Amino acid sequence: MPGPKRLIGYARVSTGNGTDDVQIDELNAAGCERIFEEDGSGASRSRPVLERLINNLALGDVLVVVRLDRIALSVTHLLQVIEALEARGAYFRSIHDPIDTTTLQGSFSLQVLTSVTRLERSLSAERTKAGIKAAKSRGKLPGNPGLRERQPEAINAVSKAREEIYLGELKAGLQTWLPTVKHLRPQHSWDNIVQVLNRRGQVWTVERLRRAVHRLVREKLADSELLTRAPRRAPEDRLMKLVAAIAIADPNLSLRSIAAQLDQLGERPARGGRKWQASSVRHLLDEAHRFGLIRH
């Protein structure tokens, strides 16, 4: 495990209450090089400062909070935040909780927390099945009577509830994928972005990703520019666009690392051969710069 480079603090204060000096003092005492403050309610899933902070962390950086409730809405949300950090090669530490992914003990505590969450989900599913079985034994049909009778009010209520659940799940996991989409859209195709996200261990399809972004735009949680059609560029070189997308999503990757990722994706080398070489990646990156796919 490589040693951490920087300690970056994150403090969330209640809306309108101003700076929480206690949090700031503790983060400074912990050695944080910089501290980012979020002004917002604990019940709100919107964390724009946190999203920007995670997106700008470098390899080996450590995100530090005073307590877990300053960053996460739930255990599931916490695990999603830590997953986003791991995708960037960064770590997480809570000063007053036994969670510190830079240490073996802290990583073990996180594994226990993950296992407990999975256990609770499993038990909840078992309780639901047991309740349905018991209802059937008493001659009662499970589910909503209004749905069985196809009542419009019941159908609309269920549809609305499902949409709210879907939106809640999108908001809870924004930090794990939306920054990458913002980086790459609309210059890159949905297909390339899906490949980049899935390369990081996520599971997306083009249809699911486009639906998610459309919903966020409708809720004014994302810029409508993300939905703009990707420009046609000459030459139409899919590999050039894919290499550019990988490099933009993770600027710290070396040429050899990008080559390894292309091998893992099953892409055939542009100049022939069985494995990608750093020189072939460099050629495609130079082309991407020349055609404006990469601006830095």
Rank of each mutant, 00 (worst) to 15 (best):
S124Q: 12
I193D: 03
S122C: 13
S257F: 08
P4R: 00
R93I: 04
F36A: 03
F108S: 03
R185V: 02
S41F: 09
I71V: 02
L216S: 05
R138K: 14
Q151T: 13
G168D: 09
L78K: 01
V66C: 11
R238N: 14
Q261L: 15
T15E: 10
R148N: 06
A58E: 13
E236M: 09
R232E: 13
R47S: 04
I24M: 07
F108I: 04
T128D: 08
R200A: 08
E225N: 15
H188V: 06
I258W: 02
G168A: 02
I258H: 03
I294Q: 10
V66Y: 06
H296P: 15
T128G: 09
I8P: 01
L85E: 00
K275N: 11
R210I: 07
A157R: 14
D97N: 15
R229K: 14
G42H: 08
S94R: 01
N144D: 14
F291I: 10
P152C: 09
A247W: 14
I54W: 00
V13L: 05
L170Y: 03
A234Q: 14
H183W: 10
G139D: 04
A260I: 07
G272T: 08
N144Y: 09
A11I: 01
K140P: 03
Q264E: 10
Q175D: 12
R218W: 04
N56V: 01
S74L: 06
S257N: 10
N28R: 12
R185T: 06
L284P: 01
D97P: 09
K140A: 07
K140T: 05
T19G: 04
R185H: 06
P98E: 13
R138G: 05
R88W: 12
L57D: 02
R256L: 09
F36E: 02
V13F: 02
E287H: 08
L147H: 02
P152T: 12
G266Q: 00
V112D: 00
R47I: 11
S46A: 12
E164N: 10
L141T: 12
R200H: 12
G201K: 10
E164I: 08
L265T: 07
P179I: 05
Q264G: 01
G173T: 03
G168S: 11
E219W: 00
R199T: 15
S279N: 14
R6L: 01
E37L: 07
K5Y: 11
K129H: 07
I155A: 12
L68I: 13
A212V: 01
W177D: 06
D286T: 14
H96R: 15
